[in-house]
């Protein structure tokens, strides 16, 4: 099972992916089922089943690498959605195969927030001290723990400068089973990395990459 943060989804800087292929006059949804998958996921938020971005993203990240690359975007969403619903006991494989609800299966209680993450998503009005200030040089931590993380591999061990403190947000990381760890409210910083620091000779002299990073992902450099 993929449970490491730097899996196939962590794509920044990878080679071999080929050209970007824009589609002229692309529709919002290519097939009606894509729209249904998107809408189902949105409407399951009040049930505490879709609102946890960490768990939902991790469910996508656990799709094996070969499938991750082969699946269309909404195939991945559907796979992840079913994964989350099955893990929470909302639907069974038998129900999915037969296409009908099992009347004996209990319906989950509606809850606005997933367990262990009552702060959810979004800017928090919390007075948490900031470890770093604008202008500080910081380094992306190496080897993040198993589970979902928002620390891209290409920033790990690289130095950048804090250019903005975005305020306090709940950490969205999960454990290796996809359960959100808790809230751990902390500052999220926008860190400016030079292209040369990230990519060496392949970088461009003037270019920069700006990444938003939770405080736990950073150390003083």
């Amino acid at each position: 099972m993929n449970d490491l943060p730097d899996g196939i989804h962590d794509m920044g800087g990878m080679g071999g992916m080929g050209p970007v292929e824009p589609e002229p006059d692309e529709p919002v949804f290519h097939e009606p089922w894509e729209g249904r998958v998107y809408a189902l996921r949105r409407l399951l938020v009040p049930w505490g089943l879709g609102g946890n971005w960490g768990s939902f993203r991790f469910a996508q990240e656990r799709v094996p690498a070969v499938d991750y690359l082969r699946f269309s975007y909404y195939e991945r969403w559907f796979t992840a959605l079913v994964d989350v619903l099955r893990a929470n006991g909302v639907v069974s494989e038998t129900e999915l195969t037969r296409g009908v609800a099992d009347p004996e299966a209990p319906v989950p209680a509606r809850r606005e927030r997933p367990p262990r993450a009552p702060l959810g998503f979004g800017l928090l009005d919390f007075d948490v001290p900031a470890r770093f200030r604008v202008g500080d040089t910081v380094r992306g931590r190496t080897v993040p723990p198993p589970g979902h993380s928002r620390l891209p591999r290409y920033t790990q061990g690289k130095c950048g400068r804090v250019v903005r403190d975005n305020g306090v947000y709940a950490l969205q990381d999960t454990d290796r089973r996809g359960q959100q760890l808790g809230d751990f409210p902390q500052h999220v910083y926008t860190v400016r990395f030079t292209s040369r620091e990230l990519w060496g000779a392949r970088g461009a002299e003037r270019d920069t990459v700006y990444v938003e990073l939770w405080e736990d992902y950073l150390e003083r450099a």
């Binding site: 529709p27 919002v28 949804f29 089922w33 729209g35 249904r36 998958v37 998107y38 809408a39 189902l40 949105r42 409407l43 399951l44 049930w47 559907f78 959605l81 079913v82 619903l85 909302v90 639907v91 129900e95 999915l96 195969t97 037969r98 296409g99 009908v100 609800a101 299966a105 319906v107 989950p108």
Partner: peptide, 29 residues
Amino acid sequence: LRVRALESILVEKEMIDPAALDAVVDAYE
């Protein structure tokens, strides 16, 4: 087929209102 199955199961469980699904799709389209 599987998406339709999931939708009808969640509708049957009264977790999802199909009209609300239509509204989300319509909003983004």
